[in-house]
Amino acid sequence: MSQTLCPYLSFGTNTAEAMTFYQSVFGGVMMSNTFGEFGTEGPDGALVMHAQLETDAGFTLMGADTPSFMERKPQGGFVVSLSGDEAEALKGYWEKLSDGATVTTPLEKQMWGDEYGSLTDKFGVEWLINVASSS
């Protein structure tokens, strides 16, 4: 038996665009279903009911649009954090996530010895990246 803990992001109507962007950042395989595939008609039928990205690094990221018959609950009160000692990979994620983002803290060496940065990406998701020092 296994278990997984992963972020499930709520988007207005741009989940397909956001999840495609995250796939370009992290790689991996994405699956997606629309509300229309489960019987919803009209404009809401084209919206993403569930998208899931599984990466080779073991990350899972999920997301969904908000159709007109549901209340939109925007992101808030949490941040997606990436950390580890694989500096090249983490810095690569930072560079890609930075495209169109608002950088809160530049990715640079901090007083605790690690490289750390934070940003809000172009879809409104907040990210923290911490690259553990090798010493």
Rank of each mutant, 00 (worst) to 15 (best):
G36D: 07
D44L: 14
F78Y: 10
D65L: 11
H50D: 09
G63V: 02
K91C: 04
T66Y: 09
G36M: 07
V48E: 07
L47D: 00
F35Y: 04
E54V: 06
D56Q: 05
A87D: 08
S98G: 14
N33C: 04
T40S: 10
G77T: 13
G27V: 13
A46D: 09
P106H: 06
D65H: 12
G58N: 13
T102V: 11
F69I: 05
D99E: 11
V79P: 00
F59W: 06
T105I: 09
D65R: 03
L90A: 00
K91W: 08
E88K: 03
G58K: 06
L90N: 00
G100R: 02
G63S: 05
W94R: 01
E108P: 10
D65V: 12
D99G: 15
F78E: 11
K96Y: 13
D65P: 05
A51F: 01
S81C: 08
M30A: 12
K73Y: 15
E41M: 08
E86C: 13
P74E: 05
L61R: 00
M70T: 15
E41Y: 14
L97T: 00
H50N: 09
P106D: 12
E41F: 12
A87G: 15
F35V: 12
A87F: 14
L47R: 00
K73H: 15
V103D: 05
F69S: 12
E54A: 09
T40H: 12
T40F: 12
E108N: 10
F35A: 07
G77M: 04
V79T: 10
T102E: 15
F69P: 06
G45Y: 00
M70R: 13
M62Y: 10
G84Q: 12
M111Q: 14
K91M: 03
T102W: 10
G100L: 12
M70W: 06
E54G: 12
V48P: 04
T104E: 15
S32N: 15
M62A: 03
E95C: 13
G39V: 06
G76I: 02
E95K: 07
F35P: 01
G45T: 11
S68D: 14
T60H: 06
S83A: 13
D85F: 01
G76K: 01
G63T: 02
E41C: 15
G27K: 11
E37N: 11
